[in-house]
Write a protein that binds this DNA or RNA. Structure first.
Lengths: 356, 356
DNA sequence: CTGAAAGCGCTTACAG
DNA sequence: CTGAAAGCGCTTACAG
């Protein structure tokens, strides 16, 4: 057990000046040594060891504020994310933080809750701090964001977004959505199931949603199925909102066939509605984007999923940033996703009884 | 579409000095106005409006490095979390960031991956930056961490941890674990199911796990059931590790009864094993800590859960920090959790007590 | 009512 | 091989 904490003694953290005084060298020498530049300046091994020892003894850590203020480059890396409530962004953020720290940068995370105004505020903040790079994940207003960067020295890397002339990294949302839709169609066919397939979740201005809708539509049309705007059910990304939307839709469409579910949050909204109408929910075929890897195994629903590789996506984005200037016109990278198949195709006995 | 970005023009962000020159006032006056202290210094409305207008025009944002360096108090708030891969910590982090920003503080998040060495590094970093407060969530080595703070001015608030003499906020892990275990026992009884109940997931030194094991044990003993160390299956918090552990256990224990699952990650490990032995997995009764709110509804497993209110926990922790000095000896707050019942026993999640 | 000046901890030409 | 000194953008006594 630690002792009750002492009240106000507060020794200040070790500083360069402190180490300089204690060792008898100048600030310059200490700073040089501590920054690993001793050899560039032919600083004696003895001097170096003395300073290093003292620094270790005092547990010296540079004051980032002073360092960044002075050196001009802020050492700040920013990550803008719409939320941290789901696996995809949580993992993105965790990887971001680890990579930033490993390169000696300060990781700043700004959560914008799918709000374009908050997004603009986030970017302005990062710019005002002279951030070295901002990773913009899944923005609502990608183009507006890009214009904010104009004239600044701050780099920008987009994740799950497409912006003309910028560096972008993402899952191939169009292709993945098409694959997922195909899986739904095929699953319905094998099951002898008919009925409309709808696209559920997301807001009209949300770029990634738009790409997925195009993939959804392409698959439908390839299969000779019609697509109309009415098949798209918009909904804000919250369980409550998704629940309301799916409820309204299903009560108006008594015999649905399948659903393209645009987020794990939307799936939770559906699950909540399942309490009210198990039969209908259970009869449908689902395809979920950002599925939890093992979710499909747990459930007795007919459910497929796209599992994005968020760690790889972030690593790729970071690489693109850290390997110097981007090529003129930007560069776009797609990171492969993984399809998660419904458990029927895996080694598990089919019983699929309603729990009712 | 934004224009291709300009290459190196880089106008520097607006500064106090810039505004001073442009408006003809001194740095002092500008600084005072911008910090909302005009009235304390009887600064003319005209002066104030002029400066404010110019600041807005230039989209002035204070340089945090300069401000914090000068003003001594760093304005930094730290959050130490073991991971961001799950809902509980993701939501914690999101709420933390929002609260910090709303109070004009700089939110710094440090992910430690359940590694005591990383935890110490995180705390040392925060201390070296003179952070105003560090929120320590679910540490492996709470006591060691507390000693690191000794003699510093940095406040500390523990989340999901108990430290002698410190301010702590958490779910009542003991009580919740006991309730959850009771639910498992009762569910098994109603089902006429016998067999050992084991505790699955977590590492020996993990404090919160220890508290939950005590609750688990209490419930067993209250029900006249034996408890022995062999019923505890340790496992690192990763899907892979949990899969391996559960596999080893179940192959050695052919007729298990129930499982206290110590994290959603552990549950995913089990789900993965379900592919190999559906019968066994399906026959057991589960209780999961940190369940996804609607997970139990999706599955055909017999599964109960504890749903922690991470947002409320973080808000409470933040309040405790922001309302000044903590009382001598610290203060401990428990935030109520919610029991999620298996769908067989209830039509929906119910607040309060376990199944009756 | 407003300004001149010091200084937070650091880095970096420059001098020797 | 090492040191004296300037300055990053800000805040805050202090002076008037």
């Amino acid at each position: 057990m630690p002792k009750r904490k002492a009240k106000r003694p507060g020794p200040k953290p070790a500083s360069i000046r402190g180490i300089a005084q204690l060792t008898g060298f100048s600030n310059t020498t200490v700073s040089l040594v501590l920054n690993g530049r001793s050899s560039d300046f032919n600083i004696t091994k003895e001097t170096r060891d003395l300073i290093l020892a003292k620094a270790k003894e005092l547990n010296y850590q540079p004051n980032i504020h002073a360092r960044n203020l002075r050196s001009g480059h802020s050492n700040i890396l920013g990550l803008m994310v719409p939320t941290l409530h789901n696996r995809f962004f949580g993992e993105l953020a965790e990887t971001f933080e680890a990579l930033a720290r490993a390169s000696g940068k300060l990781a700043l995370i700004h959560v914008t809750r799918y709000d374009p105004a908050e997004e603009a505020a986030a970017i302005r903040f990062f710019l005002s701090q002279n951030a070295e790079c901002v990773f913009v994940a899944n923005p609502m207003a990608a183009d507006e964001i890009a214009t904010l960067f104009e004239g600044s020295h701050t780099r920008q890397v987009y994740i799950d977004a497409t912006v003309e002339g910028q560096t972008t990294v993402s899952t191939d949302n169009f292709a993945a959505a098409r694959e997922l839709t195909r899986a739904i169609i095929e699953s319905m066919a094998m099951d002898g199931r008919s009925g409309e397939i709808c696209f559920f979740g997301g807001m009209p201005d949300h770029q990634v949603t738009g790409q997925r809708i195009r993939g959804f539509r392409a698959a439908l049309e390839e299969a000779g199925l019609a697509f109309s705007e009415e098949q798209v059910i918009w909904s804000h990304f919250s369980i409550e909102a998704c629940y309301e939307s799916v409820r309204t839709y299903l009560q108006a469409h008594p015999a649905p066939g399948g659903m393209f579910v645009n987020s794990i949050i939307a799936m939770e909204g559906i699950t909540r509605y399942l309490l009210e109408d198990y039969e209908t929910c259970h009869s449908m075929h689902y395809g979920v984007f950002d599925i939890l890897p093992y979710l499909s195994l747990l459930t007795d629903l007919k459910i497929f999923g796209v599992d994005q590789d968020s760690q790889k996506i972030m690593e790729t984005a970071f690489d693109l940033y850290s390997t110097g200037e981007p090529p003129e016109g930007g560069i776009s990278v797609h990171v492969p996703h993984r399809m998660v198949l419904a458990k029927k195709t895996a080694a598990r006995p089919v019983d699929g009884k309603a729990a009712s």
